[in-house]
Design a protein around this nucleic acid. Sequence first.
DNA 1: ACAAAAGTGTTATCCTTACACCCATGT
DNA 2: ACATGGGTGTAAGGATAACACTTTTGT
Lengths: 258, 258
Amino acid sequence: MRNLKSSSILQANPEFFLPGISIDCVVIAYDLNQINILLNKLEVLDLWMLPGGFIFQDEDMDQAATRILEERTGIKLPYMKQFYTFGDVNRRDRTRITLFDGRKDKAYLRFRKFLEQRFISSGYLSLVDMRDCHPTPDILSDECTWHPFNKLPELIYDHGEIVNKAMEELRRWINYMPVGMSLLPEKFTMKDFQILYEQILDRELDRGNFQKKMLKLGFLDRHEKQLSGGAHKAPYLYSFNEKKYNELVEKGIGYINS
Amino acid sequence: MRNLKSSSILQANPEFFLPGISIDCVVIAYDLNQINILLNKLEVLDLWMLPGGFIFQDEDMDQAATRILEERTGIKLPYMKQFYTFGDVNRRDRTRITLFDGRKDKAYLRFRKFLEQRFISSGYLSLVDMRDCHPTPDILSDECTWHPFNKLPELIYDHGEIVNKAMEELRRWINYMPVGMSLLPEKFTMKDFQILYEQILDRELDRGNFQKKMLKLGFLDRHEKQLSGGAHKAPYLYSFNEKKYNELVEKGIGYINS
DNA sequence: ACAAAAGTGTTATCCTTACACCCATGT
DNA sequence: ACATGGGTGTAAGGATAACACTTTTGT
């Protein structure tokens, strides 16, 4: 039997939640070559969806998003940003599902009614280090796993759209988000950093210029060389100077163009 | 007696609206020297608020925002962009008001109950030409008027915060919004255009560089000279080449730095 | 003639871009 | 030795920023 979390929607009375408002989280991580998105798989049905949840009556919306993210990822206070609220009437029309179909008890019927209302959903974008993450399915799901962004399965409702909007947001705000520090491990090579940017921006960048630009910005600490395994000069390892990095991210790190 | 609009919240049954979700609109216009915001003044109470409203059960959130904006401004399909959703529990704590206090009839009590729930509110930013605008108060208000952005009165609830967030959004996205074409009249001088940018960015720009930059971008048509009244060379009048301007706004007009 | 503001030109400086070059390493 | 990829250098072109110069107009 799986552990039930505090916000497990089957335990709680739906009266505890704000009606008609949900939260969907696009959790982004980077696995040394690929951008990954965290997905839940609905029990029984073979349907994938974004991790999400509802807002308690006495809870700020941001608090709810933080709670949901912490429960799914196991990370304390992950980087997080609300990016858009989806309010189309027909946003669920793509998928027709009926939950709990065998069951007739009051609690289930009550929840079914709660879940079947029209929902407006706020999308939150989160950037996490995959290595710190312990993906945990919610109570309606039996899997919670990473999926490469360019090989996503079919998603429920409008969740595909939500992911796309999140990626667009990431691209546009790349200079104003702690992309590197949130997604990369403690130590990394310049190549790692560059590929991350290439994946997000979806285009190739010039190696030499990227290196010089980032070094000139002055938020990288260089460490001893990696005694690497390739038939070539071993690359340096770098890490972020947290203070300088955050200052620069506030103002906006200069564009990377090539 | 004021005309009641279709969405007049006192006419309609509150059951027609989604519960707990509202829309607040930051309508921005430019009056040849100043940025102005459209505000409603609540009846009886001396309180100013953003124009806003609720979402019908069968209505997209964007449709609702469009409807509200059209009713308040009289403009058909104004430029509009959802920019943030405000969901703090205590977002109304700054102002304590009790509406309809004398009245006891059922319809009023029902509405009072509706209005007193906790609301999550989506903020929409809209840019309009002041000269095309016919500000119309909603049914709870007796005034709907423009207020210079730098002399705003005290606003209800968290509406001050909402305005600030909208202006921040405008500043950051200035290169991706049709700022000029939405806010300026059909024909305008380069000075008008520059002051608009200066007001938004809140800093002075170099006159010569601004002129050259904008002309080089190629979306301005130059007309005959204005036979102006000043003791100086008369400025040209310009207008936007709609097609070229919109193309450039899509990609992002280059920054203006000085 | 003069002041004021519009339109345009000039220059130093910086950033971007596209490479080229050398270096360290494992085979 | 050599292929491979890391780190750095360079030179052309473009953009930016600061300011100067010229033009037009009303008084």
